[in-house]
């Protein structure tokens, strides 16, 4: 956000995508705009993913029995240390299953063809579904033998949506940023918000 004059005029301000998305207040206004324009599913998808990521990180902490510093956007690298020091431990079957069910919920709601909030994905959809099928097969194996630590670790790693949804996230980001966001910053909703918030909003 930048300001050119001392008197407040929303035309002199420019909303930046990354800032709008990280501030809950502006994110909600953007969501309202998207809803009016029948394009809210990408943002709803991102919301669900963030909730999931929190659950995902929690489970890892619990498994390690110590509170690791898990970054919100933790990458695969952080998970790869699982395995060696974990002998004798077992994943909580219920919690790993719950994670799987949560992820299935996102897949069913946003990714599969004809989903109620199907995202506008290209071949990325087919690719993601194929990866998901691998996870489903692993889940079947896990249900039969939840004490198999290697399988459990692999399953947990596969349930990391920073990997599974990497391509989806890119499409969603590009669509929001290129199509709806430029229209949002010119919208009455965004102008009204800037007028109300005035110079205090940074």
């Amino acid at each position: 956000m930048r300001q050119d004059k001392t008197t407040f005029n929303p035309d002199n301000y420019c909303l930046v995508y990354e800032e709008v998305m990280t501030c809950q207040e502006t994110r909600n206004i953007f969501k309202e705009f998207l809803k009016e324009n029948m394009a809210e599913e990408p943002l709803l998808y991102l919301d669900e993913c963030e909730k999931y990521k929190v659950e995902y990180a929690k489970l890892k902490e619990k498994f390690h029995g110590l509170s690791l510093m898990v970054k919100r956007s933790s990458s695969v690298g952080n998970v790869s240390d699982l395995g060696n020091e974990t002998s004798g431990k077992e994943w909580d079957k219920n919690q790993l299953t719950k994670l799987f069910v949560n992820l299935k919920g996102i897949i069913d709601e946003f990714i599969v063809e004809e989903a109620t909030k199907e995202l506008n994905l290209s071949s990325v959809r087919q690719w993601t579904i194929m990866e998901w099928q691998i996870i489903e097969a692993m889940m079947n194996g896990f249900e039969q033998d939840s004490s198999n630590l290697e399988l459990s670790n692999n399953l947990y790693r596969k349930l990391d949506i920073n990997v599974l949804f990497e391509k989806v996230d890119l499409v969603v980001m590009i669509d929001l940023k290129m199509d709806q966001f430029p229209r949002f910053i010119r919208s009455n909703l965004a102008r009204k918000f800037l007028l109300e918030k005035g110079e205090h909003f940074t």
């Binding site: 394009a39 290129m178 199509d179």
Partner: peptide
């Protein structure tokens, strides 16, 4: 090219 999502 911008893929349109929703309506405008």
């Amino acid at each position: 090219r911008t893929k349109t999502i929703g309506i405008t």
